[in-house]
Nucleic acid binder design. Structure first.
Lengths: 201, 201
DNA sequence: TTTTTAATTGACTGGTCAATCAATAAAAAA
DNA sequence: TTTTTTATTGATTGACCAGTCAATTAAAAA
């Protein structure tokens, strides 16, 4: 039933069906046929467009990351000062949709998947590094050369809150998580020496 | 070849073979026959003693958790003051062996596995809750009713540092991670009001 | 209209693996 | 010694599933 230009539509719907299936099954151990059914097509078509299950899964990860990046950029654009940009970075990681059960589950599943899949690992590493350098860049005017350490702290806090959110039955509120990080950050800003260092890190 | 009392030996060696296999493959997607080979027995024997792959994997998780708990208790016993106990809790999570590539990988793999396996999830939740209440209990004399918030922060930091360690190629030093958390904690101790609250959390 | 070409299906193949089971071996108990 | 009991194996079964392929449909191009 070929209406030309279906490819793009199918690819997109297969990719979101993949995410949806991973989220519902709470695992990466899913069948291509399930994904295809969720997208309303045959399993053959999934292979036709993506070649293999692995590549389809990578495409889904890439999609998750791109979505997130879009969110970050949008929020960053609305912020003026470094301090506001820091809040924008925190807020985009811990915005209500990102901190939802489905999204958090997907992240965790992909993180684990990346352990045994070099290409997934690289994709995630890029994302981590980008967040890290964003944080660092905006921290520098505020805390000088303690920026890398504090960036690492904030980044770890975000990831840790995700991990714990994934495990919780009664999901925590995204606002709670944001406040927690902001509080922590403020502690370092209030009293932090503008330049000059104390402990090596 | 029955020398009586083999059961205990086999169970133990199958459990550590399971952990080892998960760590080597960096995945929970492993074959019973691989585990058995690593333990030097047939795959039939693994089923004989554990009934199913699932139960063997749960036993491995339980073993990881018990090992960790033993470490925590040992370190706690050596600490006298609440402040020292906090450091003991941090140090046991981020001790050199716990922060090693193999261990960190196993944790991440199990965390993801727990998303789709209720029994694994419960085991991990118990571990998180126990750490949390330990932290909280020892924070209370130092920071009053901000204890829960700060405990959540430290717990999240630990988990986040694990997650990032798992992703890194050049593994970070455990001492670096400990220092980072101690620095953060100190910020809250130095200036924290003994009682009395500011923001709701 | 005829031909080409993109889209799509679902049956099929081949490989993989968890779990079972009947058989065997030898220590321990009688 | 004979019998029982425990330990152990590896071949086998049955289910599952990724990926392939030949066939079909209908839009688009000629």
């Amino acid at each position: 039933m070929p209406k030309v230009g279906m490819e793009d539509i199918r690819r997109k719907s297969l990719i979101s069906a993949t995410l949806k299936t991973i989220q519902e099954r709470r695992s990466i151990d899913i069948r291509v046929s399930d994904i295809a059914r969720a997208a309303g097509v045959s399993s053959g078509l999934a292979h036709h467009y993506f070649g293999s299950k692995d590549r389809l899964i990578l495409a889904a990860l890439r999609h998750l990351l791109t979505d997130f990046r879009r969110l970050v950029l949008r929020r960053l654009a609305e912020a003026d000062s470094p301090r506001q940009k820091l809040s924008a970075l925190i807020a985009s990681s811990l915005d209500e949709t990102q901190f939802s059960d489905a999204t958090v589950t997907a992240w965790l599943v992909f993180y684990a998947h990346a352990q045994s899949t070099p290409e997934a690992r690289n994709l995630l590493r890029v994302y981590v590094r980008r967040l890290q350098s964003n944080l660092c860049y905006n921290l520098r005017p505020l805390v000088g050369n303690r920026a890398p350490e504090i960036a690492e702290m904030i980044g770890s806090l975000i990831d840790g809150l995700y991990l714990r959110q994934a495990l919780r039955v009664e999901k925590a509120d995204a606002a709670f998580a944001r406040t927690l990080i902001e509080n922590c950050l403020n502690r370092f800003l209030d009293t932090a020496p503008m330049e000059g260092q104390d402990h090596a890190v």
